[in-house]
Amino acid sequence: MLSKRLIVCLDVRAGKLAKSVKFVNTRDIGDPVIKAREYYEDGLDELVFYDITASSEKRNIMIDVVEEVAAQTFIPFSVGGGIRSVDDATRLRMAGAEKINVNSAAVKRPELIAECAYAIGSQSTVLSMDIRQVKESRTFPSGYEIVIDGGRTPMGIDAFVWSLKGEELGAGEVVVNSIDADGTRQGYEIKLTRMIANALSIPVIASGGAGTPEHLYEVLTEGGADAALVASMVHFGEYTCRELKEYLHNRDVKVRMRY
């Protein structure tokens, strides 16, 4: 049977690894290629790179990072952040990314999902959603709203409805990222993750809020997620990928233990 996946997210700003809390207070914490390689050798299942470079002239640096990572790690990795067109997606694919994450641009223009699915395949098209909790209402039947532009712009779109639409348009996987939980280390948004995982027939990656191995266990069992994404837990050396997987393995979650 399939193993649950451990995914490490690396936020990259102008070629440097960065980490934010609730999407702000970003600081640089190292070289993404060196980190990626370290995690790969430690048994990580998958990598995600988010390009959070603010200025467009520095965005080409990301292509170099992707090529370097592709030459040194041999597990799947995806790239997101600022992808607005099939051209952007194809360039990153050619540079070596297995999958492309679309986010804000897909909310503004949903056809982007279908266009990417057609050009690079559904299996390589990931819909990443930044979500915050709101009061349940007619506009937000699920009680969750889609927010874009790095958490700055609420869109008045129900998150659950958007996830269904994303699958219909051809996304091969979704990332459920809770803005409320991001960087808090208080645990994933279990209710939201479960709601989406139950409804979709494509894999769901839970993101935002991981602070202890127990949190990963919760979201992979109770939350129904196929993969758990972590960042600060491993970036600052508090846990290794191996330790997180051993914890899950010891609690009978099937994870890849030999590599």
Partner: peptide, 28 residues
């Protein structure tokens, strides 16, 4: 069980092959 089958899964070798030498059952 979602389709596509996406992620890491184990293999069981059913007959020896030179290219699978060293692959153990359950290797993902």
């Amino acid at each position: 069980l979602k389709v596509p089958h996406m992620g890491w899964n184990g293999v069981e070798v059913t007959q020896p092959h030179p290219l699978l030498e060293g692959v153990e059952n359950g290797d993902e």
